[in-house]
Design a protein around this nucleic acid. Structure first.
Lengths: 182, 182
DNA sequence: CAAAACATTAAAATTTTATTTAACAAATTT
DNA sequence: AAATTTGTTAAATAAAATTTTAATGTTTTG
């Protein structure tokens, strides 16, 4: 069975793409997505823009599944909705700049981590202080409260650092420290 | 029903701890662990060292469950095995320095991301180059191969940057740029 | 070295999460 | 405005992951 040079080329290109698609979707668990969502992103990475039917055909999955997957990808800014006139189908495009995905994702996540934990700490601080300052408590109780208070106090250093890390990513000053091109 | 100052203090301290435990375990999805693993870590965070039976009692779960949870936490360096003589039970201690957990976890993950994707890219490059240099292929094929090649080429910039980010965390030069204490 | 204590693995059960089919809603075109 | 196309939600199913009970292995102690 003879194959033309172009037919061989198609095979090679597909193989090349599959390698990269596999690696991307496998490492995308870091971004908290399932393998199939990862595979969708990686597939879109090699395509211009896609509508839901094209995704469904490419991944051989149902349309509602594509709908939810693409929304998850939009939430973490890895896919953008594109406005294509002419067709009335919604079209989407993968964010191809990994720096942007990185920046957007980790900033969001780390901000959430800081916010939730700081709120909890402030609440906890209030009650721990009450115990620490309560003259009618035993010394043991006040010591225990103080111990936890100090732990939380030192964890604040980390959360503030994380806040500044996010800031340095948002304002891109991180790239002064670590340039994109070395 | 009268409660003594110490009884009230216990309640307050427990409430304070629960706030923080809730926040930590809720945000620990970032570290790719389930809520119950997160809750175990957060619980251990407030205890000195614990053995499996103490964990089981505290979280009201089975022992094998604690065994697997604690192993997961060890894998991401958030829990260390401690050697306690006297008792023959294994004891474990939570890593309380969030900087260390951060550094260890993200370095490992990002290194894995770089390694897997770079390997895939090198493999892909090989086949894409073959197509690009094949004189018998149509121009369209060669162009397509080249297009993908360029995409991968530019993604390498990101992976190399990630590599340097990991390095700066490992050698702690990141803290020259962003000191722990601002 | 046998018995006891503890931890881990294996299998089963439960729960959760992902996916699909089917129904519904929204929008566009005729 | 009716009909058609498209997208999303809801309910049902399937798949995967977590948790438990039961069995096994390992270490320590008497």
């Amino acid at each position: 069975m003879e194959r033309s040079p172009d037919e061989q080329a198609i095979e090679k290109i597909d193989y090349a793409k599959d390698q990269v698609i596999g690696a991307i979707s496998e490492t995308m668990d870091l971004y908290g997505v399932t393998p199939s969502v990862g595979k969708l992103y990686a597939t879109m990475y090699f395509k211009g823009r896609m509508n839901l039917d094209e995704m469904r055909e490419e991944l051989e999955m149902s349309k509602p599944s594509m709908s939810t997957s693409v929304r998850k990808l939009q939430e973490i800014d890895m896919v953008k909705k594109t406005f294509q006139r002419g067709s009335r189908k919604h079209t989407y495009m993968a964010e191809k700049d990994f720096f942007r995905s990185f920046m957007s994702f980790y900033c969001k996540m780390w901000e959430r981590e800081v916010k939730m934990n700081m709120e909890a700490i402030y609440e906890a601080d209030f009650y721990l202080k009450e115990v620490m300052e309560d003259q009618y408590c035993s010394q043991e109780m006040r010591d225990e409260a103080n111990e936890y208070y100090q732990m939380l106090e030192s964890s604040k250093i980390y959360y503030h650092w994380l806040e500044r890390l996010v800031e340095s990513i948002r304002n891109e000053s991180i790239f002064d420290f670590l340039p994109k091109h070395e």
